[in-house]
Simulated scan of single mutants.
Amino acid sequence: MNNLMFTDTPASRCAYYRRTCGLPAGIHPEAGRIILRAGLVGAITMPAPLGQRVRDDLLHNRITLGPIISHLRSRRWTFLCRPDLPNDMSLFPELLRLNVTLVPPGAEIALPAPIDTRTGHRHWIVAPRDTFRPSGLILLTALRSCTTRGPRC
């Protein structure tokens, strides 16, 4: 019997994201990165230390975590979520003060790809296992909880 070696390629990883995780991912034609366009999937990006506090708050409150991406160079985390956040203009100044961004519909979100293992650009803090993504409203509540209680969320 032949020993077949399976390799993780951008195409195979993209297929996994699409089929197993329900993420409408594609491969950027010029850059070769795996991307997801925000819309059917929402996303909130924040500084890594705040992201760690939000993640810990969710765990402390026994809320199931969804996919979280670490962008190592910018030291930011992106939480993938359901796109159920209100389009409320009063929300933007609050988030701006915290250096938090709601990824707008149509914007590209770079997902961890096989090459990132070697280059260290991005990796999963919590990898997607299925189609589950938490409500953006739950993430916003956890974010507010962490920022009103100070650094020890």
Rank of each mutant, 00 (worst) to 15 (best):
N2S: 14
N3G: 10
T7I: 13
P10S: 07
A11H: 09
R13I: 11
C14F: 01
C14Q: 13
Y17S: 08
R19L: 15
L23A: 04
L23T: 07
A25H: 04
G26P: 01
E30D: 14
A31G: 14
A31E: 14
G32Q: 06
R33Q: 13
I34H: 08
I34K: 03
I34Y: 02
A38V: 10
A38G: 09
G39E: 09
G39F: 07
L40E: 15
V41L: 01
G42L: 05
G42D: 08
P47S: 08
P47Q: 12
A48F: 02
A48Y: 02
P49F: 00
L50N: 11
G51I: 05
Q52F: 08
Q52I: 07
V54K: 00
R55D: 05
D57L: 09
H60D: 12
H60F: 08
R62V: 08
T64F: 00
T64C: 05
I68M: 00
R73G: 15
R76M: 12
W77Y: 12
W77M: 11
W77P: 00
C81S: 13
C81I: 11
L85M: 05
P86Y: 03
D88K: 12
D88V: 10
D88F: 02
D88Q: 10
M89T: 14
S90C: 09
F92C: 05
L95Q: 04
L95V: 05
L98W: 02
V100L: 08
L102C: 09
P105W: 00
P105E: 11
A107Y: 02
I109D: 00
I109N: 01
I109E: 02
A110K: 07
A113N: 08
I115M: 10
T117A: 14
R118K: 10
T119G: 01
G120A: 05
H121A: 14
H121W: 09
R122C: 10
R122H: 02
W124N: 03
W124F: 03
W124A: 03
I125M: 02
I125V: 15
V126P: 00
A127C: 03
A127E: 12
R133L: 10
P134C: 09
S135V: 06
I138S: 08
L139W: 05
C146P: 05
C146N: 08
C146A: 09
T147S: 13
P151Q: 15
R152K: 12
C153G: 15
